[in-house]
Nucleic acid binder design. Sequence first.
DNA 1: TATATAATTTCGCAAAACGCGAAATAAGGT
DNA 2: ACCTTATTTCGCGTTTTGCGAAATTATATA
Lengths: 298, 298
Amino acid sequence: MDFDLITLRLFEAVVRLGSISAAAEEQNIAVSAVSRRFSDLEHRLGTAVLYRKVRGVAPTPAGEVLLRHAGNILRLAERASAELADYAEGDRGQVRVAANPSAIAEFLPAVFASFRDKHPAVKLALAEQMSDDIVHDIADGQVDVGIFSAVVRHDGIEAFPFVADRLCVIAPAGHPIAARDGVRFVDILDYPHVGLEDGSSLFRQFAKLAEDAGRVLELAVRVRSFDGVRRMVVMNLGLGILPRAVVEPYAVSDGLAVVELREDWSERGFMVGVRERAALSGAAARFLEHLLSSKMAG
Amino acid sequence: MDFDLITLRLFEAVVRLGSISAAAEEQNIAVSAVSRRFSDLEHRLGTAVLYRKVRGVAPTPAGEVLLRHAGNILRLAERASAELADYAEGDRGQVRVAANPSAIAEFLPAVFASFRDKHPAVKLALAEQMSDDIVHDIADGQVDVGIFSAVVRHDGIEAFPFVADRLCVIAPAGHPIAARDGVRFVDILDYPHVGLEDGSSLFRQFAKLAEDAGRVLELAVRVRSFDGVRRMVVMNLGLGILPRAVVEPYAVSDGLAVVELREDWSERGFMVGVRERAALSGAAARFLEHLLSSKMAG
DNA sequence: TATATAATTTCGCAAAACGCGAAATAAGGT
DNA sequence: ACCTTATTTCGCGTTTTGCGAAATTATATA
């Protein structure tokens, strides 16, 4: 390549002002530097681009050609810079998000929606993964922002507590346990439940716990979503076990009792993690802020 | 400006090959240099342009934008380079030519025409000037190639003998001096002449020489061009004084006698001059070659 | 005619950018 | 556990670049 963008910009100024000195002043650079840039340029090109006249300079025919192209090239370069600035500032870009299935099922859709409203040009690429893998991929740099269970180790990344949720037992108003403050898992095995389908790891966990206690989880019905569970409980088909955040908003209007489930494993906190907050891309930084500012009640 | 053309070209290669190392090898540059170029670039832009993956790299969304623009910018830059190469090689360009009126009147049109046939894209800008000014402007660099009278001093420029012409007296076949080998100026003042119009410095010179000799140049008729002089002489209206090169081609067919004018000043050699032959632009070098190769008989 | 004025170019030096190879680092694949 | 394939970091030397001072050149002015 015979020229560089700085020389092109200087050349534009030189021709516009008809003088190397004037251009040097305008562009805040020493006259001598500009002069040598052009002498070097002409050497490389093998042709003069400026006629040296008594009171300044004027483009040679080759200079006119250079000038025309310089304008085009510089305009393109500026457009590129401007466009890239959007990425730097986070107005534009992509955030690679990974979340575990529970987070996706429970609250991520709402968070995504509100983020999209605020930053319509930022694309969110969501991957559903197990929490351990998420931490791993964050550390690797393959994921910008991850949402994962608070119970997994997350050394080597920056993690922030997000939703501090807890599993609760949902009961219709007249149910025997509806009035209690808290229950143990074994206490509720006497009653029929509204279960989730097999795909849910949460539900598999319940089944295993019941089995460990030498009991079975008696299912009145199985549904596919948290929302389905809630509706079935309302219809008095059985007890449900759900994250508090999922039912809390509906508890009063549905006339449901939300009874705390007092077990180690019923703590279902979520963390948000990034590799290095200070090094996040603009868009990812925006998304992280958004997540942290929309923390939900525990 | 956030980037330079070299980085853009490297970026194109990196994305195309999906790897910094491969691109470095292709572009004959050390891997470390390429790596640092991008790390610097990303710093300046404030956003990453490459995702570092396990087996190489891939563009981020910002990188895709950069890539798109890089292509456009590089293509433009290459076009510019190619176009400018024509100027360097002399296939294209402008040659600022200065010549004195005699040269223009006598032979320059023919030289220009043949040069244009050989190099149609080279523009010749002709200025008609006095010989001293021509030498001056060559030294100044305001003129690329000059054609001027050999009698003026031409120190400080490179000059080459061009047309070594001589003024001759043209007489119709039966004229008293037609048979002579050579004549002095005073010898021909006894006869009527075919004169040129006042604008001609050549003719003013004759008038002055006659006056210095205490005589007058008797004019039978005045015409505007060398060619007109010749035709009037053919018609037997008087003697003419013309550069030999102008009449020689017609002398036989017109039945004219061409008699050498034996005076110091009748030597009318022309020189071609340039400031520095080695430093000429491509086009100017071509024109100089053309001039020197089309030297005319004296 | 001598002297200012306005422009470019040349020069020497210092600072910054750049390239290179070696070593460090990282993640898979065998 | 070791090898392979990448990128990154580091130290060093070279090249490029910028700057200010001085040289140069041509015109304008006194």
